[in-house]
Computed example of a mutant assay.
Amino acid sequence: MTGSRKKIVALLLASTLTTQLAACGTVFYPERKGQISGRIDPVVAIANGVGLLFFIVPGVVAFAVDFATGAIYLPGGRRAELGPNATPDSLNQQLYASTGHQINWQHDAVQVETLASIDQAQQRLLVAY
C-alpha cells in the first residue's frame, strides 16, 4: 500500500470512528435531543449498528449516547384531539394541562380561523410548512 492510500484509509477510519463515538442520531438530528421515548428511528438504529460491524465499543457507545439523549426516537410522539365544539379557552386549558404554557389569543402572530372540515385543517397546515 502506498503512503497516500494509507493516509486515505486512516482518515476514513478515523472519521468513521469519530462519528460513531459521537452517535449517529445526535449528529444527524440534533433537534431530537431531550426526547424521553417514542418509536425508534430505523435510519439511526442501522447507522449505529454499522458501528457494531466495525468494532463493538463504538457501536455500543453510539447506541448508549443516542438512547441517553433521545436522538434515536422519531419525533411527534404526542397527539392532541379536540371535541367538535372546541373554543379558544378550552384549547388553552388543554395546552396548559399538557405543556404548562398558555396562548395569548390577542397576540399579533396568532390567527384564529373556523374551518369546515378536517381536510381544510390539513391543507392549512401543509401551507404553513
Rank of each mutant, 00 (worst) to 15 (best):
W105Q: 04
I46Q: 00
Q111L: 05
Q106S: 15
Q35V: 13
Q122E: 09
E31A: 11
I46D: 00
A86P: 02
N92I: 01
P84R: 15
Q20S: 07
G59K: 04
A128H: 12
S37I: 03
Y73W: 13
T18K: 01
T19D: 01
D89Q: 10
P84N: 13
K33N: 10
F54G: 08
I40Q: 02
Q120N: 06
F55D: 01
F55E: 00
A71T: 14
N48V: 09
T26P: 00
G70F: 12
R79C: 10
F63H: 05
S117R: 02
I36G: 00
N104R: 07
G34W: 05
I118R: 15
P58G: 06
F67W: 09
Q120A: 13
M1C: 08
R78I: 06
V112A: 11
I72K: 01
P88A: 04
W105L: 06
Q106F: 09
S90V: 07
I36E: 11
S37W: 11
L115S: 02
E113I: 15
S15K: 05
G77P: 01
Y129K: 15
Q102H: 09
E31P: 00
A68C: 05
C24N: 11
V127T: 14
L91K: 02
Y29P: 05
G59W: 06
Y29D: 12
L11N: 06
V60D: 03
W105E: 04
Q94R: 13
R32S: 01
S90N: 09
W105T: 08
E81I: 15
T18L: 08
G25A: 09
L12K: 04
V50G: 14
L11W: 07
L13V: 13
Q111Y: 02
E81K: 12
Q20R: 03
Y29N: 06
L21H: 03
L52R: 11
V60T: 11
I72H: 02
V27W: 06
